[in-house]
Design a protein around this nucleic acid. Structure first.
Lengths: 226, 226
DNA sequence: CGCACGGTTCGGGCCGCGCCGAACTGTTCC
DNA sequence: GGAACAGTTCGGCGCGGCCCGAACCGTGCG
């Protein structure tokens, strides 16, 4: 029996908001990592995580003495994105030291956003797909016939029959302030890129790096210079 | 300098949530009407409305001794919709008397949702547009070439060049639990329907009624039986 | 002019929430 | 077994939010 007010209340606290935005990288974090990230005590983090799980925004997985949490699903991620897109500012402390600044720079270049790609890389790839006529943006956003063929050829991805998830969806990039591509297409592209060694994680956060093979692949498949 | 937590906080109160959901009918309400609707004192309503306006969710217009408020724009409406769609329950008191029940029934049949149509009418028209091939739902949602022609012929609507607003967008209908159509298309259809006497407001809420001329028009233009 | 009315402001009361530290449970590693 | 570590539970504290009533301000109407 949750209501709009209760749902909104889940995000109406700085600590919980920071958790959700951190988890937008789509990976599972431990309770301790999130506590440090948000600057609160482990006991506080534990309580707040329980509330988010209770509210259905997160799910947990226990492994040994660790508690891993992640966003409950694409709907939850979309809701966090919608709120973040509407809020001009992001709940994140200003960088305090050089390490932090470097990490921010890496994230602005390329990062994951839930299960797809964001940052300059994300919007560059999105633009390339539009330029190549794989995605049409003249009325909302949609995958063209050419785009569908490309997904099958280049990524080996076919939309499952009766799929509930939209094939493509826009997601406002909050470093670029322009949309990048999410939905099943965004997820397939991101997954394929990791599978084939086009990208690798860098550091412990959501930042990623384009490998030489990736640069070649993005140029060959999309005409994108990254 | 608002943040995700602050933005969510705007909706994290029962009274404010009730206000926003009432205003989803797209019309301007006076402060007193909203106070009565939510069951709070005028002083409380006044304070809460000021917070929502401060937060950019609502805008106000003063006329004589009345303060009219409405949702600030389509983005704000979309955010309320996103939260409402995620929250299984709606913040509205159960109907207390026969009048209330009748009104609920009328709203379930046909109502406005911000600037487009909802209820059984809304989803029926959406289904009809899909069936007729005016709107394609196989990859997200998009208006087809035939749909564009239909908009021009039947409604006299042309998408403005360089329009920022998506031509079509889905909006989850919370009485039907299925999507209906929003975006510029939804707004154009709704506006045309009122203009041409296909619909009229019934009662003081968001409920609407299909006129005989409307039933004929919906059948002729969309093959929909409403 | 005076009253009714819609709305606002202010002070005060109350409750809930978010946070912490301390004590505790359970896991891993030596 | 013992130490280190991740996480949880609980009591308590303090702040802030939400609401109300009372007083007040403008507008509109008789």
């Amino acid at each position: 029996m949750s209501s709009l007010a209760e749902t909104a209340g889940l995000f109406a606290d700085r600590t919980r908001a920071v958790f959700c935005q951190a988890l937008l990288d789509g990976r599972a974090w431990t309770a301790g990592e999130l506590a440090r990230h948000a600057g609160v005590r482990p006991s506080t983090a534990s309580e707040q995580l329980s509330r988010l799980i209770e509210g259905g925004v997160l799910t947990q997985e226990r492994q040994g003495r660790h508690r891993y949490v992640r966003l409950a699903g694409p709907e939850a991620a979309a809701l966090v994105e919608a709120l973040a897109a509407y809020a001009p500012e992001v709940d994140r402390p200003r960088p305090r030291n050089l390490r932090e600044s470097v990490r921010r720079g890496a994230e602005a270049r390329a990062r994951t956003c839930y299960d797809h790609l964001a940052g300059r890389l994300g919007v560059t790839l999105a633009d390339a797909m539009v330029t190549r006529g794989l995605v049409a943006t003249d009325s909302g956003v949609a995958v063209t016939a050419a785009g569908r063929a490309w997904l099958a050829d280049a990524l080996g991805y076919e939309q499952p029959r009766g799929a509930r998830r939209p094939l493509v969806r826009t997601c406002l990039d909050w470093t670029e302030r322009r949309p990048h591509l999410a939905g099943a297409l965004g997820a397939a592209l991101c997954a394929a890129a990791f599978d084939r060694g086009w990208l690798r994680r860098v550091g412990s956060g959501r930042a990623v790096q384009v490998t030489p093979a990736g640069a070649e692949a993005f140029h060959r498949l999309l005409g994108a210079a990254v």
